[in-house]
Design a protein around this nucleic acid. Structure first.
Lengths: 243, 243
DNA sequence: GTCTATAGCTTGATAGAC
DNA sequence: GTCTATCAAGCTATAGAC
């Protein structure tokens, strides 16, 4: 039943297709972008949006090709099988997000000196890059954030998240542990998971929060971040006060 | 393109197939359950498990039929189109969960008398039926809880959740408002959403919490509930203390 | 690297015998 | 209500002309 797919082209993270062919010498039958990499990006953007909206299995390669305005087989040509396309979509922004978070952590460490980093800072530094990107970044970030929310509670998605985000999570958890040494590790992880779940729930942007609040417009991201930070900081403080 | 499916049989919530045929007079080619309703339940259980594991689009009707050990067309016969099957799966336990939660709310109201219900009680009463069912109920509840987690952050899933769970959410929010009248409605909803997101994240059971905590076994549900309640109660208290 | 064409499956849904 | 059979449509992936 399981037929192993032997691929001719690269399917790894940054797998560059055979020849980038610098001079745009393709016949201009349809207005195509000048840069050869624009096609790849267009496919990734379309896939990102559709995966976020309909999920992995709800999105066909044809849908992606149509949305990206490329030929059906172009996506296979550039990214290999569907799974590799999906992984490339996730990886593209995961590396950026990881850099932002680890940089913020480095800065917080420098700021704190010998003392532990305040939990409030830890929560804010972890959450802000994500929510900010989803809010006033390019629209692709919004789709990406929604996609992550979708992945978070699915068995298959967790594997991908683990691969791309567990290292950063552990780095932050180490600092949480330093800030709250008297709290058990399992409880710290529960608190951290609550932060992540809340963050993803906000960015999934399902409209439920607005509906339950009878609000017309989504709340500004800045307000959401600050409330999330306040709320969960209080939670962590409660954990440290053993009754 | 959109072809309206005209169904001969009921596809609504409790749609009973034409004739329950009390005496089991089918020829015993394969060991079939005696009760005619057992077949329906077996299909629903199989669908529940597969939808939770692979999602709506990742699950084929054939998969469901195979897992339920029925003929491929039996599921269509009993439940109509795939969408109706899915909705039936969600509805089946939603009514039970809603009853449990509203009963708990009634009891809490009686207990509190004229005073507002404590937030701690509100959180616990909303969360406990769900986590408890997922933990020591029949295995079907575990699958159901995972399915809800999967649905929560998806656009299509939110519509279903709204239909089955928004009324209860509003009932609880009304009590939250009574308990914390000085907190803005949007912030109460954010807090409530954090509780729900955390609850679903725990029940999704992806193994990430255990992995990040380097724990061998999942934590007992009772501990998870109490920590969630403590953590989020502190969050709500923080909201009421306007700095 | 862009296009056409197609192989080889799987899908949802239904028809009709018993 | 259980079974066999099948349809039309959609899917992923690849081959090969240009």
């Amino acid at each position: 039943m399981i037929k192993d797919n032997i691929k001719p082209n690269e399917v790894t993270l940054k797998g560059t297709p055979p020849a980038p062919s610098r001079s745009s010498r393709g016949k201009p039958g349809r207005p195509k972008g000048g840069r050869p990499e624009e096609t790849r990006d267009r496919i990734l953007d379309a896939a990102e949006s559709l995966f976020a909206d309909r999920g992995y299995d709800g999105t066909s390669i044809r849908d992606v090709a149509t949305a990206a305005d490329v030929q059906i087989n172009a996506v296979g040509y550039h990214f290999g099988p569907k799974e590799a396309l999906f992984d490339t979509v996730v990886a593209r922004r995961a590396t950026i997000m990881t850099t932002l978070r680890l940089n913020a952590l480095d800065e917080a460490r420098a700021q704190a000196g010998a003392k532990p980093i305040p939990i409030e800072t830890l929560i804010r530094d972890y959450v802000r890059p994500f929510i900010d990107s989803a809010d006033h970044g390019e629209p692709g970030w919004r789709n990406y954030a929604a996609l992550m929310g979708r992945l978070a509670n699915s068995p298959l998605g967790t594997e991908i998240i683990a691969r791309h985000y567990d290292d950063t999570a552990r780095a932050y958890l180490t600092e949480f542990r330093r800030a709250l040494p008297e709290v058990a590790q399992e409880e710290l992880v529960d608190g951290f998971s609550a932060v992540v779940a809340s963050m993803l729930s906000i960015c999934a942007n399902t409209g439920r929060r607005e509906r339950l609040a009878d609000a017309k417009h989504p709340r500004p991201a800045q307000a959401s971040i600050e409330l999330l930070v306040r709320f969960h900081t209080a939670g962590f403080r409660e954990l440290s006060s053993n009754d």
